[in-house]
């Protein structure tokens, strides 16, 4: 069964004012359990608004959102449990840290869930290990840490709620290349270990290409497509017309193809590019 499902989901900002704007327009979507989904779209395409519907932060203007088969907003009291099912890590999550110690900050979510102390402790230790935060760091104030470490603590704060769906909005933005790889690597590891659904919102097509199996593309408030990564990159031209930057390597190979070099598959990671080149060169 689909873990996330939307029906005719529409969201309008500032309805009835001169600033009225349709942010999400009639979106029908089904995301299966256990997928690692990349969410792309240029700024203002509606992707941020869309993901905020998945854990009941925004109420649809019309249409419905189902999480794990349950329709949101039928009963307002049931919204909080949904937030525990769908964890949302916002962009620059380190700016939301507030507790005296990292330990307490990670505990905030699990505590709100009403778990007992032993369980909270277990979860904090597990997620801290998962995001690569040492036991000594847990007792430190989050404000003493480096940017990359803060980010990990903030992500751990949501992971510790053990949500069935984890949504991350630009988890690697502002980090250096190594920090990027580390954060994305640990998210992938989390996905592989927990077999949970992960939604990764990113502007970097390189990162999306490298880490996800499915891609959801938003364009001008509409769902442009939701499909396998390979199939979506096959439409590189349309993506570029939308103002999305496809990976450099994809552009290179598309140009080679138009120059008459023949190969079947689309290239969107350097790993595959290397394999393909070796094959092409060996065939000669």
């Amino acid at each position: 069964m689909a873990i996330i499902k939307t029906e005719n989901l529409t969201y309008v900002y500032g309805d009835g004012t001169p600033f009225r704007k349709v942010a999400v327009d009639n979106v029908d979507l089904e995301i299966e359990n256990g997928e690692m989904v990349g969410v792309i779209g240029h700024t203002g395409s509606g992707k941020s608004t869309l993901i905020q519907h998945f854990n009941g932060l925004l109420k649809p203007t019309s249409g419905s959102v189902y999480i794990d088969g349950e329709r949101l907003w039928d009963d307002k009291a049931k919204l909080r449990p949904v937030r525990f099912k769908v964890g949302l890590v916002f962009q620059y999550p380190e700016y939301q840290l507030f507790e005296e110690t990292c330990y307490k900050d990670i505990a905030f979510g699990p505590k709100n869930m009403g778990l007992d102390n032993a369980e909270i402790d277990r979860r904090i230790k597990e997620t801290a290990r998962m995001v690569g935060i040492g036991a000594d760091v847990l007792d430190k104030s989050p404000f003493e840490l480096s940017g990359g470490q803060k980010r990990r603590v903030a992500i751990a704060g949501v992971m510790a709620m053990e949500p069935q769906v984890l949504i991350l909005d630009e988890p690697a933005s502002g980090l250096d290349p190594k920090g990027r790889d580390q954060i994305l690597g640990l998210i992938r590891e989390y996905h592989q270990q927990k077999k949970n659904t992960v939604l990764l919102v990113s502007h970097s097509m390189e990162d999306i290409a490298k880490h996800t199996t499915k891609i959801l593309v938003m364009n001008k408030a509409k769902l442009f497509c939701y499909d396998d990564t390979v199939k979506v990159f096959h439409r590189a031209k349309e993506l570029e017309e939308m103002g999305l930057a496809v990976p450099q390597i994809t552009r290179v190979f598309n140009r080679l193809r138009s120059m008459g070099i023949q190969f079947d598959d689309d290239v969107y990671t350097t790993k595959y590019a290397k394999e393909l080149l070796m094959r092409l060169l060996a065939d000669k």
Partner: peptide, 8 residues
């Protein structure tokens, strides 16, 4: 060095 190079 923890840096990267262009894909090309």
């Amino acid at each position: 060095l923890g840096l990267d190079v262009p894909q090309v």
